[in-house]
Design a protein around this nucleic acid. Structure first.
Lengths: 124, 124
DNA sequence: CTTGCCAGATTACAGGCGTACTTTTCAATG
DNA sequence: CATTGAAAAGTACGCCTGTAATCTGGCAAG
């Protein structure tokens, strides 16, 4: 509950990509990705269990882990903090910042315009 | 150099708001803001000194601290990390996320449209 | 019924962080 | 020159994190 650490989030990402996963599967995806020993992955899984961020249960022949919190919720709390701390909670300055640092691709621009149109459409 | 911690960033913010500041001034702004004892603020200042994030020097009668790194640079590394970790480096999904969570104010929308227009204008 | 495997718990340990006090070292002032 | 006052360095300490190994208890297979 009290915030997922950086390393722990790697486990979560794996589970959000594909759910459920066995311990074996988590270890074989997340381990190599991060250069972690199996024991390390198990520790992180244990901590996530204790935090209530994931749950494990045996289902049809295997033992599977599932995330208990939604990625969107996690993303929300992570990005809200940054937005508040760095940009006084305003989205536009954040985007402006990325624009200044050449992080705005043509694709982003296209998607942003579409997004804005859609929002205005809905609001109408 | 190796990343400014959350608590340390409060000191930096004070120095970015107004530079230079004396130890006294830092303590009297940052301390109450965060409920920190003077000793705590001094520790954070020391760590920032050791990290090379700020510098202290005596100038006309007082001892003043100045930031050695620009806020823009710090904001950049902070937000880049989040963008990469959470949104695969794409800005549009980030904005979409905020839109879905009602974090997009009318003001933001207006500013975003202006920003996009300006970018397209420049690119032309 | 026994044995072995695996999930979960326990233990380990160093480094960073938040919080804070104490000691040392200078520079200025009397 | 001596004292003082503040800056900087050192000490402290508990918690979280990253990294990892080991112990334990229950279920499944033989």
């Amino acid at each position: 509950m009290q915030s997922i650490s950086e390393a722990e989030s790697r486990i979560m990402e794996a589970l959000w990509r594909k759910t459920p996963l066995t311990a074996e599967q988590i270890i074989s995806t997340v381990g190599p990705e991060n250069g972690w020993a199996p024991a390390t992955v198990k520790t992180l899984v244990t901590r996530l269990l204790k935090k209530g961020a994931i749950a494990g249960a045996k289902e049809d022949g295997g033992y599977f882990y599932r995330p208990l919190i939604a990625r969107a919720d996690w993303v929300q709390s992570e990005s809200q903090g940054l937005l508040d701390r760095l940009f006084k909670g305003e989205v536009a300055p954040l985007v402006a910042h990325f624009a200044e640092h050449r992080q705005l691709s043509a694709k982003d621009l296209r998607q942003l315009k579409a997004l804005i149109s859609k929002i205005e459409e809905d609001g109408k």
